[in-house]
Design a protein around this nucleic acid. Structure first.
Length: 876
RNA sequence: GGGCGUGUAGCUCAGUGGUAGAGCAGCGCCUUUACACGGCGCUGGUCGGCGGUUCGAACCCGUCCACGCCCACCA
């Protein structure tokens, strides 16, 4: 019993509880969720002997609140886990959040900036303290949103990527990797963000085509002059060579000589390197090893010095006229200076080229030589690729595999150190001379004389890469780890396939002795607005899911998202659609109300088939077919299709047809009503359980009311009983046809839907049994004495003769029938054309030919019927 | 530059060889005792263009056009 339902005043053992006439989500959702949590439904027991089913939450960043994309992802995960729980699995949906290093630090820095402060004003310790405070607030907001959504997570296991246990995981794997020489420290060109003041990894750089200006500069003099082109003129201060292609005859005589670098007075060599494309520009390239990754490689090959000319804020540090200018100021100043010297040989020309930007703050990346920690990804990526290649891990949808392979198979070493304050401090201590003296957790706390810990933190993805097992207690060999690793499925967006999924694969396989972190990777798309546009705050089309949940209910939001979820494909969502889903939940509510008020029950065994009407058998046959269909779709993560199937079965077949066709039976009472009441109870029982994973709240309220059981959360998942009744399905299809046809006739005649019309029905064989419901649906009254038909409508082997008492619109009807006969004739001609084609008859499969013959027969019958109908019309 | 994908009703999308579908929107009728968050009926498509394979193509092949996404060390 739920709080908002009461016993009928009429009482009795089969009394019908009364529910309000509309589903008001706000009144039930919150209470239900807390009850589920209190009863421990979502807690996963590592000691259970049920088979495990595990999904870890893609940990949301603690930077703010959840958006529709999270709601989407959570709907999928919650539905999957709710179904498995009902199927009897020991189900763990692992909750938690990500500290999201750079993103969170930036957010808190922005907050500080509002007060006119920087993190340096606070100092490291106080700043980190401030971020923790932020985390507490934001995290509370996120878990509140998850409760509203109905996420069935095990709150007792909630984790944070920077909690104590997870820090232990991070340090442990760092040391293991270091000991295996898979982590090393090296000076390389890295992607440097001059605003965030940290190195970032390759995938944190977003490339976009920017308009730049290509200037051509003459280096050297006279016969030795050589022209190079650049869009970053300021880097010339750091040039330590000019490179040409080894086979380029134009410059062969210059290779090995030196020329003067303008503005600096330095002399630099001309080297020959395969990297240079002789077809591009002049075929000569300035080489700045300290500020360009390609040039760095060239420099290495030719033993060139690396000359840094900018500091970490991209300010020129070379003594002289340009010192203190930032890179853009320096660019124009240097071009101007070169022009003054007559060194600009071709004027600046607009040039669109790909430029890297910091994915967090959009600042242009400055490639920079820097000492950082790296993960050697070769062996790890190899294993991560193999696990998918040999089928131990499946990527769904399969098309995404090629993307995965192209990445793991072409991966460069991963720069993991960040010059930030918020994150896992790198567990490395240096001696007085800067040498590494201690790594990892084992020797903690390090006590050596003059030892200092590395001040950098780790890339946030380093810790989230451990998520599938760190949350279960690793490196401790816990019962939970034993039970719930590997995870069953990973559900996440294709946008973090590389950031997160590939890293979990690498770390999982590495840390867990070759056991991949999950068997299946189910990738979903991105939520977009109703026009397919990306949702973003700046564009103004981002929606707070709470707003819609308040308005239409969590179930409505969930159903809309599920209905849009085609694997790997972006899902558009608009308010209209949420509204439509809200109507659906209301429809379920009211249909169940009707059923409860008319004797639907789940008490006792289902009546024997012989006692059931064809309508009963039809609906049960369809019900079981839908159970099987939905089950298969769940296994394939086809949320859109399974939601659609449930929507149509529930609304069209059960609520519109079964309920309407059964009304006469219910109202008549007696054994027939009893049988149908039990059947309707069965249908709703199964249907509500089938719907529950997607729309948990409304189904919980209705199902517990219907069954009196404790909760649908822990009910059994429906099984296909195997019951099918093709004859009943055919029979009801006939009934539907008759009803539809007469309805169309009535509508065309402009008869009021409620207007009763005296009629005589002559229905063929099986359909005759359905005369009562047909009359009921069509508002046809028994024809009394003196009945005279003014309109006769031939239907499916019989006739419906009606006394329209002069209301018939003969012209309208004549027009409609003429149109229909035209269509039927066209149909007939088409079928005849095909059947007269010998090539077709020779090659087409039998069922196609049969179908065509049926079509022909139907068309001919239609023509005859409609002709008779036309003839039967009163003369206008 | 490479890879993947998309183009079907006004909008968002299903539909992988056999008579074009759904939801929403639109039009019309209706307070018929579960629901007006409802019921019923209707309108609407040269399935991006062209060519090919086939008895038959939205679906397979080729080509062109238009979008989208991912990857890449194009000075």
């Amino acid at each position: 019993m739920t709080d908002n339902s009461q016993r009928s005043p009429h009482g009795g053992p089969n009394s019908t509880p009364e529910l309000p006439t509309a589903y008001v989500p706000a009144e039930v959702e919150g209470k239900l969720y807390e009850r589920w949590v209190e009863r421990g439904y979502f807690e996963a027991d590592a000691k259970s002997d049920k088979p495990p089913y595990t999904i870890v939450i893609p940990p949301p960043n603690v930077t703010g609140s959840l958006h529709l994309g999270h709601a989407f992802e959570h709907t999928i995960i919650d539905s999957l886990t709710r179904r498995k729980r009902m199927q009897g699995y020991e189900t763990l949906w692992q909750p938690g959040m990500d500290h999201a290093g750079i993103a969170t630090q930036n957010v808190v820095e922005r907050e500080l900036a509002k007060e006119g402060k920087s993190r340096h004003d606070l100092g490291r310790e106080a700043f980190v303290e401030k971020v923790w405070q932020w985390k507490e607030e934001s995290g509370g907001q996120i878990s509140g949103q998850m409760r509203r959504l109905g996420d069935g997570v095990d709150w007792s296991r909630e984790r944070f990527t920077m909690d104590e246990g997870l820090s232990q995981s991070v340090q442990t794997i760092f040391k293991k990797l270091y000991d295996d020489e898979l982590i090393y420290r090296a000076e390389r060109i890295i992607n440097w963000c001059p605003r965030c003041l940290t190195a970032i990894s390759d995938i944190e750089v977003e490339y976009q085509d920017d308009d730049g200006e290509l200037v051509s500069i003459r280096y050297g003099e006279g016969d030795n002059a050589i022209v190079v082109a650049t869009t970053r003129a300021e880097t010339m201060l750091g040039d330590t060579a000019v490179a040409v292609h080894p086979d380029d005859e134009r410059y062969a005589h210059l290779v090995g000589t030196e020329i003067e670098l303008p503005l600096t007075g330095r002399r630099i060599p001309i080297v020959a390197d395969e990297h240079v494309d002789p077809e591009f520009g002049t075929g000569a390239v300035k080489v700045t090893p300290a500020h360009d990754p390609n040039d760095f490689e060239i420099g290495r090959r030719h033993d060139l010095p690396n000359l840094s000319v900018m500091n970490e804020r991209a300010i020129i540090t070379v003594p002289g006229p340009f010192e203190g200018l930032d890179r853009l100021e320096a660019r124009s100043a240097i071009v101007a200076a070169l022009r003054a010297e007559g060194r600009i040989v071709a004027e600046k020309r607009p040039y669109s080229h790909s430029v890297g930007h910091c994915s967090r703050c959009k600042t242009t990346i400055e490639p920079r030589l820097s000492l950082q920690w790296w993960v050697k990804v070769g062996p790890l990526a190899q294993a991560a690729g193999d696990a998918v290649r040999d089928g131990r891990v499946k990527i769904h949808p399969k098309e995404m595999e090629s993307r995965y392979f192209s990445w793991v198979d072409n991966l460069h070493d991963w720069c993991i150190s960040r010059q930030l304050w918020w994150g896992h401090r790198i567990p490395v201590w240096y001696g007085p001379a800067g040498e590494v003296v201690c790594v990892g957790p084992d020797e903690l706390p390090p006590t050596g004389e003059g030892w200092t810990q590395d001040t950098d933190v780790l890339d946030t993805w380093f810790s989230s890469g451990l998520w599938p097992f760190s949350t279960l207690g690793w490196p401790e060999q816990t019962e939970s780890l034993e039970k719930f690793y590997p995870n069953s499925v990973l559900v996440t967006g294709y946008d973090i396939l590389f950031f997160w999924v590939a890293r979990m694969m690498m770390f999982g396989l590495y840390a867990m002795d070759g056991t991949p972190p999950f068997h299946t990777i189910a990738l979903h798309g991105m939520v977009r607005d109703q026009f397919g546009k990306k949702m973003s705050k700046s564009f103004g089309n981002a929606v707070n899911p709470l707003e819609w949940m308040d308005k239409y209910g969590s179930d409505a939001v969930r159903f809309t998202l599920a209905r849009g979820a085609n694997p790997g494909v972006d899902v558009p969502i608009g308010e209209d659609w949420v509204q439509a889903s809200g109507k659906f939940t209301n429809k379920i509510w009211n249909a169940t109300r009707f059923a409860l008020m008319n004797g639907a029950t789940v008490e006792g065994e289902l009546p024997p088939v012989e006692e059931m009407s064809a309508t009963d058998r039809w609906v049960l046959s369809r019900l079981n077919a839908v159970v099987a269909e939905v089950d298969a779709l769940y296994e394939d993560y086809q949320f859109s299709k399974l939601s659609e199937a449930l929507y149509h079965f529930a609304w069209d077949e059960v609520f519109d047809w079964y309920v309407e066709l059964s009304k006469t039976t219910f109202f008549a009472g007696g054994r027939g009503a009893e049988v149908s009441g039990r059947v309707l109870g069965e249908v709703l029982d199964v249907l509500l359980r089938l719907l529950h994973p997607v729309v948990p709240f409304v189904t919980e309220t209705l199902w517990t009311t219907l069954t009196g059981a404790e909760s649908v959360v822990v009910a059994d998942w429906p099984k296909d009983s195997g019951f099918r009744d093709a004859a009943a399905e055919k029979e009801i299809a006939g009934v539907q046809q008759v009803v539809t046809e007469v309805r169309r006739f009535r509508a065309d005649q402009g008869l009021q839907p409620g207007q009763k019309v005296p009629a005589q029905l002559t229905l063929p064989g099986a359909l005759a049994a359905h005369e009562a419901p047909i009359r009921q649906l069509l508002r046809l009254q028994p024809a009394g004495a003196g009945f005279s038909a003014t309109a006769t409508l031939p239907v499916a082997g019989g006739t419906v003769a009606m006394d329209l008492s002069g209301t018939i619109d003969v012209e309208a009807e004549r027009k409609r029938l003429t149109k229909d006969i035209g269509l039927a004739e066209k149909e007939k001609a088409q079928a005849l054309g095909k059947l007269g084609n010998e090539a077709f008859l020779a090659k087409a499969p039998e069922h196609v030919v049969d179908k065509l013959r049926t079509r022909l027969a139907t068309a001919e019958a239609d023509i005859a019927r409609i002709t008779a109908q036309l003839d039967g019309l009163p003369q206008g």
